[in-house]
């Protein structure tokens, strides 16, 4: 509780000291994005995970989609879609949703390889995800199981940003209105037919650009206005 009061940078340093040497410590040794800086000067990693279920620690990551956002510009040269190999069989319900079957998952890369890459991508950057709880939960669980230690993220949750915008205007909001595709429609963003991790990461990145553009009067804003 005390550490929360002392701020994220303090917590980051403490966690870095505890983490075993390796990918997690490398990640934690990067200074976190400054919450006070102009959001247009920050680098983000828009992220989406597809998983076998909703419980981190019990369910597994099936695929990762990620793309870098440099300030107000999404850089598609950094777009990646990575399938994760899992030893357990994929529940039918999840295979139907993600179109990822046991066979496809078997072609993926082991989580032991994917996590170091992902942590490297996130180092010093801000995570963007829609309903970021899932991404944070699964990545935290993966760090515990792989490195036996805790992790810390700076994140923009586009769903939380939307919820705050509704509340600022004293508007009632139904859960379905907070879905990624419903929110995109509000901002005139195109409909993407595909629903893989990469297109959802991209969809969240575009939604963030739209949300920021509509809040920003043109003079810029502090990053913390958008953070969880």
């Amino acid at each position: 509780m005390l550490s929360r009061l002392l701020g994220p940078e303090y917590r980051r340093k403490r966690l870095a000291a505890k983490a075993p040497s390796g990918p997690l410590r490398a990640y934690l040794s990067h200074v976190l994005a400054d919450r006070g800086s102009d959001y247009r000067q920050v680098e983000y990693l828009a992220l989406d995970l597809e998983t076998t279920g909703l419980q981190p620690g019990k369910d597994h990551i099936l695929s990762v989609g990620a793309v870098l956002v440099r300030g107000t510009r999404i850089d598609l040269s950094t777009a990646r879609h990575v399938l994760v190999r899992t030893k357990r069989s994929i529940p039918e319900a999840s295979a139907v949703i993600h179109q990822i079957t046991d066979d496809r998952a078997a072609q993926g890369r082991p989580i032991e390889e994917v996590m170091p890459w992902l942590l490297e991508q996130l180092a010093g950057r801000v995570m963007i995800a829609h309903h970021a709880k899932v991404e944070i939960g699964f990545l935290t669980a993966a760090c515990r199981s792989l490195y036996g230690s805790e992790v810390l993220f700076t994140a923009v949750d586009t769903q939380a940003v939307a919820l705050r915008a509704f509340r600022r205007r004293n508007q009632e909001v139904a859960a379905r209105e907070l879905r990624l595709h419903a929110l995109r429609q509000r901002y005139g963003l195109p409909r993407y037919p595909a629903h893989d991790a990469l297109s959802d990461a991209l969809a969240a990145a575009e939604l963030f650009l739209a949300q920021a553009a509509h809040r920003d009067s043109g003079k810029g804003m502090a990053l913390k206005e958008f953070l969880l």
């Binding site: 107000t72 999404i74 598609l76 040269s77 901002y187 575009e206 650009l209 553009a213």
Partner: peptide
């Protein structure tokens, strides 16, 4: 597509933008 970037322009903003890198 890998060579592209994406930007969003709110209604009323100048286009093309003045802050392109």
């Amino acid at each position: 597509p890998k060579a592209l970037s994406i930007r969003y322009f709110r209604r009323g903003t100048d286009f093309p933008p003045h802050d392109a890198d």
